[in-house]
């Protein structure tokens, strides 16, 4: 069964239709990159998927569990709050700006939600957090505050914070856009390690080369629709749609 499934998603902000009839399924272990110009609706799509925004139309499921369902005349009807709360444990979201809680230590940032939201035993969570910190190379930073860390370290903490809830899928919203090139590679390495461990991931990114290397599938979005999708060597290596070609050409010009 697919981990994530969305059908005929549409979303508008006032008169502006940001997402138009988006459908997508993500299979277990799959790594999908979403690329596209600013304002193409990539981030809004991620925000709909992670319940930060509600969509007007469409059906969305996590592992077959209905988050919202299209009903004729009503649009997308969401499941009751209790169900949604449970659903939040299915996914994790890594933000562009990390959004760590500044008044808590690194360790507290990671362990608080599993303990006080999911009600997991403290000892088990602590052990898991220590293992995650080790995996992220941050063992020595457990008692530091976010403001004492570099951007790359903060982003690694926020990835650990997402991982500790044992999500079935993790969404990354431009995880390196707030970082300089050196720190970017630090985060990309973490994501590659997760890929090697078969974590299911959806990554919105501007790092085209990275998307080419890490993903099983690349989705190109523009103006609220999925223009083209497929294996990276096709979408990035040999794009068929003129819109994709124009976008990639502009990027390579910007690089030179």
């Amino acid at each position: 069964m697919s981990i994530f499934e969305v059908r005929h998603l549409s979303k508008r902000f006032g008169d502006l239709e940001v997402l138009k009839d988006i459908s997508m399924t993500i299979e277990p272990g799959e790594i999908v990159s979403i690329i596209g110009p600013s304002g193409s609706g990539k981030s809004t799509f991620l925000r709909c998927a992670t319940l930060l925004e509600t969509m007007e139309h469409g059906t969305m499921k996590y592992q077959g569990n209905v988050v919202c369902e299209e009903r004729p005349g009503h649009g997308a009807v969401y499941a009751p709050g209790r169900t949604l709360k449970k659903m939040r444990a299915f996914f994790g979201l890594v933000f562009q700006n990390f959004n760590l809680f500044p008044h808590w230590t690194v360790l507290k940032n990671i362990i608080d939600a599993p303990i006080s939201v999911q009600g997991r035993p403290k000892e088990e969570v602590l052990a898991a957090a220590k293992a995650l910190l080790k995996r992220m190379g941050l063992e020595s930073k457990a008692d530091a505050y976010p403001c004492q860390l570099s951007g790359g370290q903060q982003q690694r903490v926020s990835i650990a914070r997402a991982l500790i809830s044992k999500p079935q899928i993790i969404f990354f919203d431009e995880p390196t856009s707030a970082l300089d090139p050196e720190l970017t590679s630090e985060i990309l390495k973490v994501i590659k390690d997760l890929a090697a461990a078969h974590m299911t991931m959806v990554i919105v990114t501007h790092e085209i080369e990275f998307a080419r290397h890490v993903s099983d599938r690349v989705i190109f979005m523009a103006d609220g629709v999925i223009v083209e999708q497929g294996p990276p060597e096709e979408v990035i290596g040999n794009p068929k749609h003129p819109r994709t070609q124009a976008f990639l050409r502009k990027l390579s010009h910007a690089d030179n």
């Binding site: 992670t50 939040r88 444990a89 994790g92 933000f95 700006n97 959004n99 006080s116 914070r161």
Partner: peptide
């Protein structure tokens, strides 16, 4: 910042928890 609310939301904190803890 609005991001604090969003992070809390994604992590599953209730509205009361978000207000009092974060």
């Amino acid at each position: 910042p609005i991001g604090q609310y969003e992070a809390a939301n994604v992590l599953g904190y209730s509205r009361l928890q978000t207000f009092f803890k974060i």
